[in-house]
Amino acid sequence: MTKEEALFKYILRIADTNLILGHRLSEWIGHAPMMEEELALGNVALDLIGQANSLLQYAAKVEEKNKTEDDLAYLRNEREFYNTLLSEQPNRDFGFTIVRQLLNDAFNIHFLEELTKSSDATLAGLAAKAHKEALYHFRHSSAWTERLGDGTEESKNKVQNALNELWRFTDELFEMNEVDEILLKEKIAVDLKAIKPKFEKTINEILQRTTLNKPEKAFMQRGSRDGKHTEHLGFLLAEMQHLHRAIPDVTW
């Protein structure tokens, strides 16, 4: 694998996670439990899709195959996506969405902070902008986790169940492979081993403020680094890519 190929895959990981999670959050539009929350989830979705847009532009440039960010977003198939398994999990209920977001945001605030130090100036610049947005996303998702986790019996159960179900996708966030090896040598990539204790500390701090328990020894699912996904991604892509594939190069 060349450095360029590794960089391309590395950018896709970050971009795809943002794109897919942004799409998931946008599915709440018209269905959120209250209008204020509909706006909040929509704002987070727009931030994430905006980040994905910039990153995919950069990925297209690195790939040098004369593609655009739209080609990458709408014309790749499931196995060519590198978003985390966590990001593609369905919304279910509001508590489930919040826990999915919390795990994603707790990773992102530490990951993006490190990525600002990347020797790749474009990635470092995009990370600096995204980090500010991630800090706000984390503030939102952690505030709701505290309130639901310390709320009624029903809200606590829903959030605890969500945590138990989603915990198995957290190990994968820190998985490193050949891509990371090549880019770590160039000081482009973030050493994810160093991020993991920070992530766990952040999650512990939030959970300590609630009556929620961190799941013990869950089976850990992996696969997205190889483009292998849960059954949910295909359905999401079908919806997200349908228009672009049905009417190629459509604009409005």
Binding site: E36, L39, A40, Y136, A143
Partner: peptide, 8 residues
């Protein structure tokens, strides 16, 4: 939450 909702 009021502050966050107002911000959004």
């Amino acid at each position: 939450m009021a502050l966050q909702n107002a911000r959004d």
